[in-house]
Amino acid sequence: MPRAKDVANYLLSLSIPNTPRAITPLKLQKLVYYSQGWHMALNNGEPLFNDEILAWEHGPVVSELYYDYKHYGYLTITPKNFNNMTKKNRKIFSKKQLEILKAVWDSYGEYDGKYLEELTHQEEPWLTTHRNEIIKKQKIKLYFNRLISKEL
């Protein structure tokens, strides 16, 4: 199973500096959260990664990613090359997972981190979780399942 760090690395490979599609630490956190939510909704509740997402003041956060990228502050994170193979020559993401990640990027990638923060602040998983607590995967799954139901 991929890790949140793998999701972040893939998303960073799509970043385009000096455009609305550049990724800051705040934006990265929200994109990783939306990747988890949409993956769960489209895969019978199966998480994309097992890392916990916390309800921090500025929205959903994977703490490991926060500490990896906090030195960028509000600046754009340097894009990365992404290789979908592990050291053991196995694929990190399936074709379907990559399609979902690309769809998340296509849907949310043009927005800045503050806009995505405000969006998450209007959504049930963050709203109904105490600050600094884990946002339960079940809560994320139910919320994104409801979003899909509204679209159909």
Rank of each mutant, 00 (worst) to 15 (best):
E46C: 03
L54C: 00
H58E: 07
A8Q: 08
K91N: 11
N43V: 10
L119V: 14
Q36G: 01
E110N: 12
L31T: 02
Y33I: 03
V61E: 12
W56N: 06
K95F: 11
F49Q: 00
F93L: 03
E117M: 15
Y33C: 02
T128M: 09
I100K: 01
S13G: 02
K27S: 11
Y111A: 06
N83I: 15
K139F: 02
Y67W: 13
A55R: 01
G109M: 03
Y111N: 08
Y67A: 00
Y69G: 01
L127G: 03
E99H: 02
H71E: 13
P60G: 06
H121L: 08
K30H: 04
K95W: 06
E123W: 04
P2I: 05
K95P: 07
E123G: 10
W105N: 03
W56S: 08
K91V: 03
R146F: 02
E57Y: 10
F49V: 14
H39E: 07
S13N: 10
L152S: 11
K95Q: 12
Y74T: 14
L142T: 05
K114D: 07
N132A: 04
A22Y: 09
Y69P: 02
K70R: 14
N132Y: 14
L54P: 01
T76F: 05
Y72W: 12
I134K: 12
D68I: 13
M40K: 05
M85Q: 14
Y74R: 09
I77T: 10
Q138R: 11
V61C: 12
K27P: 09
G109P: 05
E99M: 08
I53G: 05
A22G: 15
T19S: 12
L11P: 09
T128F: 09
P60A: 06
Y72G: 02
A22N: 11
K136G: 04
E151P: 00
K102N: 14
Y69R: 01
K70I: 15
L48A: 08
T19D: 06
S15E: 07
D112P: 03
E110Y: 12
K88Q: 13
A41I: 10
N132K: 10
Y69H: 00
P60V: 05
L119S: 05
R3T: 15
K102W: 02
T129V: 05
L98E: 11
K136T: 00
H121G: 03
I135L: 03
V7C: 06
A4Y: 15
N43A: 10
S149C: 00
Y67P: 06
E123A: 06
W38Q: 01
L147R: 14
P17D: 03
H130W: 07
K87N: 10
V62S: 06
K96M: 13
H71A: 12
A22K: 15
L42V: 00
V104R: 06
K27E: 08
R3W: 11
P79D: 01
Y69S: 02
T86M: 13
L11D: 01
E118G: 13
N145V: 02
N9Q: 09
K5Y: 09
K30W: 07
I135T: 01
K88T: 14
K102P: 07
R90M: 08
A103E: 08
S94T: 15
W126A: 09
H71R: 10
H121N: 01
